[in-house]
């Protein structure tokens, strides 16, 4: 089973490299952010797999939990910031006076 998990870890590393293409050439900022979030989820899986490959899963699973939380907070914070930015921009353009 260790061989299977090692193969899966290598496979996920390849997927991270492929997904990084979207970070580099993504036409919009949102594409890049989406790819960064996807890479974060792959990294959580990679941390859990490395823990089981090295037969020491306890500490690595704590790292994976922390990484999942930070990944979620980062993506949501930047998305809300962009949402606020576009709303204030449309308010400035539309000129809805209050």
């Amino acid at each position: 089973m260790i061989e299977v998990l090692t193969g899966l870890a290598v496979f996920i590393s390849i997927l991270i490299a492929v997904t990084f293409y979207r970070v580099l050439v993504g036409p919009t900022l949102y594409d890049r952010l989406l790819a960064v979030g996807a890479i974060g989820t792959y990294a959580v899986l990679l941390l859990a797999l490395i823990g089981f490959i090295y037969e020491r899963p306890s500490g690595f699973l704590d790292l994976a939990i922390t990484y999942a939380i930070l990944n979620f907070v980062g993506v949501v914070a930047i998305a809300k910031y962009l949402d606020l930015d576009s709303q204030s921009a449309s308010d400035a353009a539309g000129g809805t006076e209050e």
Partner: peptide, 8 residues
């Protein structure tokens, strides 16, 4: 997270 990003 992806829903928030898509809504933005």
């Amino acid at each position: 997270g992806i829903h928030t990003l898509t809504r933005a």
